[in-house]
Design a binder for these strands. Structure first.
Lengths: 256, 256
DNA sequence: CGTGGCATTGAAAACCGTCAAAATCCGTGG
DNA sequence: CCACGGATTTTGACGGTTTTCAATGCCACG
């Protein structure tokens, strides 16, 4: 990992492992605006406070990692504010992005199966997470049925998400992948109350390409083409969706 | 879906939904040879019998489906004997295979998130499954900690499996994918006590291609090339691994 | 022994990756 | 505040890999 002058941090600069500092505060799920997106869906106030008892809220700076491949698995992490990527270093030494994650999503579930994480989780902007120690979460979910159910739904949702990415990677051509990617981002922004039609990309073209199984030049070319066709506006990382229907149309007429 | 003369069954021929017949019998997890591969890992005899109480064992004929996309989610299915594929019909009407599943594996977890299944599960040979009604499994896993933990590990393992397929689809070229596929199959056969060096493929070239994001011709060509190079023996669906190290070597020197 | 799915093989085309160069952006230091 | 420099992005030309199209062969099953 290298330094650049734009604030991306080295392994040395990163506070890692996450230190116990004054920025750690107890969560307050009952007051959290993401209550309906997060694990807490459907819990009453009493149960929410039981969650609060062991969930720790923490700020994460851009470039900082929550966990890395090989780290012992200890907790799941709910994103309160911000944007993360998860990636895996392949055996050939290439980084492959496995997901981009926004507020209300939970990361770290890959660690449950083998007691260590298989991917890295890195903040792509200044963020805030809720750390949920897994032993306690497991314990509590044995006592609160709706927490158990929500947790299972989150795991299953991750499986379904991964499978739709498999379909994207296995059956779509480059421009379809990019269109699907933009529409997916747009839709997730909408759910969170942000504008679905204009947003900043927090990741580089290379990271997008890695996620979609494409080279960065191909990503750039697709953006330019969509721009020329009036489907989107592109200014570096700032994207406007000008013709969502047009993007959707690219997905349906699969020439493959 | 079409009939052919080799025993693949049509939707009409299939017994679907799975009927209540005399082929349904109570499971006997304590006696099951897959106890150490399945959800029952680590359970004592008393707890095993609690599982038996609601797990139903059933035979599934080749071509028959356990569930289909859109079906209400009711149960998870442990494979006792046999071989299954899961696939999704994409919006363009193409089938994409999302997984091949062997004895000891659990399918259906995609259904938890939305209360209906998103994929189809089809037997590729005569098989036997254990049906685990989900409500009861969830209930029991609140009372048996090690069952809860095993269940979570299975879900997480599915996530990790999907992610390694994402890496395969996103970063490997055709021959690497085929080599990885063969080695993966081989390894899973070994774990189950079968020969790791020779086995019958239960799926067609087209299904392999669909799974790996390749066309069937590309799969066939890779098989022929590996055959010519002495890495494998190929006679239709019968495969022999002649040089596993040679196959592994294909994975490490990624020219990409 | 014929039929139909499945598999193999070849040739040409399409798509995307590679390589290379130029442009743009942005944080930093002067 | 401006200029510098590295990272990122864009764009072009070319080449390689995989798909597409097409024809043939193979095998299991009736």
């Amino acid at each position: 990992m290298l330094v650049n002058r734009q604030g991306k941090l080295t392994a040395v600069d990163q506070k890692y492992p996450i230190p116990l500092t004054s920025s750690n505060i107890r969560a307050a799920c009952a007051q959290c605006s993401l209550r309906e997106l997060c694990l807490a869906v459907g819990l009453d106030n009493e149960d929410l406070h039981k969650l609060d008892d062991f969930v720790i809220r923490r700020k994460i700076k851009r470039g900082q990692q929550i966990f890395r491949a090989g780290d012992p698995f200890e907790a799941l992490y709910a994103i309160r504010i911000g944007f993360f990527k998860t990636d895996i270093l392949t055996e050939e030494g290439l980084e492959q992005v496995t997901g981009f994650h926004m507020a209300g999503e939970i990361i770290g579930m890959d660690g449950i199966s083998n007691d260590y994480h298989v991917c890295n989780a890195t903040a792509l902007e200044d963020s805030e997470i809720c750390i949920m120690p897994y032993d306690q979460l497991e314990e509590l979910s044995r006592h609160i049925k709706s927490l158990q159910q929500q947790f299972h739904k989150f795991m299953s949702r991750e499986i379904v998400r991964d499978q739709s990415l498999m379909i994207l990677l296995g059956s779509m051509r480059a421009e379809e992948r990019i269109a699907a990617f933009l529409l997916n981002l747009s839709q997730r922004m909408r759910v969170r109350g942000y504008s679905a039609s204009e947003f900043h990309l927090r990741m580089t073209r290379e990271e997008i390409g890695s996620y979609l199984g494409l080279k960065l030049e191909t990503v750039s070319r697709a953006f330019s083409k969509f721009h020329d066709e009036g489907l989107i506006g592109v200014q570096q990382k700032y994207i406007r969706i000008l013709n969502a229907e047009g993007l959707k149309a690219l997905l349906n007429h699969a020439p493959s």
